[in-house]
Design a protein around this nucleic acid. Structure first.
Lengths: 156, 156
DNA sequence: CATCCTTGCTTGACGAAGCAACTATACGGG
DNA sequence: CCCGTATAGTTGCTTCGTCAAGCAAGGATG
């Protein structure tokens, strides 16, 4: 942006200071590189894409091991239609079962099967390793408490 | 992951401590939400997808405002084929011109046109605002220098 | 209880991005 | 100088994810 920065800042937008600037540059790269790297590791080592892993994970933590499609989609940061397709795929593999929602017959619950839980347990170390390798291992010297607070905000 | 964590940790993999755990949870969400949010803002406010913005930005910083396809793809964290199509699109809009590489006739340089530079200048406040809104505004209390160092590592 | 609107989810169509196959050029060894 | 191999980029095909339309069920209003 150096060829652009000299422009007068429009709209009263405070420009980034040098440190923020450096962070922003990395952010641009990280935004694309990180999800791909973690997903690629999961696929290579476990044949389980990251979205599918996250779906299983979220279900495993839900009461009764089940969630409405809606909630699952939100938890996985996905559109409802996208999640619908992911669940179809996981159902075909036997990791999820779809059951009608009792309180509202329009709704469906995605229910984690025993096979799905087993799959999650099998895949979990690979995910942990990938997240360590691509993320935590580089965070030396950072205050984890503050970082956790900041990231909680970002993810909202 | 609470239903899974009690499992014995395989492969001598150190589990995450509670703070790391919290960070990891947010990371999972952030990985998907952040790029989509920033891209959506750019498209809404400027009609310019984030990848295209980054392509223009990287070119603007390159010597002679040009880069080999290869280098541009790497800079944007994209595959060569993907970048090929992005450049085609930007060329059709007149923001980029493709010129044969002088040292190597197999190669092509993507050259940022004056129109492209103008487009970049027009779009960058939106990008800055989006990055602020979705990222920096939540980073209160974090050491930017340390964060920059950490993120530089991650992006490698 | 008939009608109308809303809501939850699925499906069709489409765009974006990757891989693999292809084309064109470069370069090294006979 | 010619051939085989390596490299730069593009294109065909597939996959994935979104939006918009459709369908089925709930809920309100007369």
């Amino acid at each position: 942006m150096s060829t652009v920065t000299p422009e007068p800042t429009p709209g009263g937008l405070r420009p980034l200071n040098p440190d923020e600037e450096a962070v922003a540059r990395c952010l641009n790269r990280m935004i694309y590189a990180l999800p791909r790297a973690i997903d690629a590791d999961m696929v290579r080592e476990q044949g389980l894409p990251l979205v599918e892993y996250l779906a299983l994970m979220n279900l495993s933590e839900a009461p009764g091991r089940q969630l409405r499609m809606n909630e699952l989609a939100t938890a996985c940061e996905m559109s409802l239609s996208g999640m619908s397709r992911v669940v179809q795929k996981l159902e075909r593999q036997g990791f999820i079962q779809r059951v009608r929602c009792e309180e509202d017959a329009r709704g469906w619950n995605a229910l984690l099967t025993d096979a799905g839980l087993a799959r999650l347990r099998q895949a979990w170390p690979a995910h942990l390793a990938a997240v360590r390798r691509h993320f935590f291992d580089h965070l030396v010297g950072l205050d984890m408490k503050k970082l956790a607070a900041a990231m909680q905000q970002i993810a909202t």
